Computed example of a mutant assay.
Amino acid sequence: MKGAIIPYLTFYGDGKEAVEFYTNLSGLERVGVQKYSDANFPHPPEAADYLLHCHLKKGDFQIMLADSADKPSENNKHGVTLLIDCESEEEIERLYDRLLEEGKVLMELQDMFWGAKYGKVIDKFGFTWDLNFEKKG
């Protein structure tokens, strides 16, 4: 695994406001920002201006966030996911398989449009994990 586990916060339309708040609060810099309309990714029309992905960083501290195009549940307005940036295809496959032991697939491990292999699972304890491996070249 590369670096620390990165918290990934999920919002439901107020992601841009959260980015402004967190950058002003702590001096975090925007490493990357992408809206749904910037990517070839299916989404409802009302989510076109939502954040598909935002990466904020200051020194070693990192946080990522996005807006979900899905409706929030009554009990959970915002969600937290843990992101692991993997060093190899073997590592991402091993972690994916282990987290699925008594867990649940949210997104199958697959090649994604941003040049990575990616999968999303809920482990047996109910925590959501994003697994990402940036492919070279």
Rank of each mutant, 00 (worst) to 15 (best):
K71C: 00
K120L: 15
F127R: 03
I122L: 09
L51I: 14
E90S: 08
D70L: 13
T10S: 14
L9Q: 05
G59K: 08
E87L: 10
K71P: 04
K124C: 07
D67I: 04
E87A: 12
S37N: 13
I6A: 05
P45A: 14
V121A: 01
E29H: 10
E134G: 04
R30L: 13
Y22A: 03
D14H: 12
S37E: 15
G3Y: 06
I92V: 15
E46D: 12
G79P: 08
G27M: 12
G15T: 05
E102T: 02
G32M: 15
R98T: 13
E93K: 15
E102K: 15
E101D: 14
L95Y: 13
G79L: 09
A66E: 05
E108V: 02
K2A: 13
L109A: 03
G3S: 09
W114S: 05
R30F: 02
L82R: 01
N40I: 05
E46K: 10
N132R: 05
V121D: 00
M64F: 13
S37I: 12
D14Q: 14
H43A: 06
F21N: 04
N76G: 00
S37H: 09
K77L: 15
F127S: 06
L109I: 11
D85P: 00
T10G: 11
E90L: 04
C86S: 05
A48W: 07
E74N: 03
V121N: 03
A69R: 12
A116F: 07
N24M: 09
F113Q: 06
E134H: 07
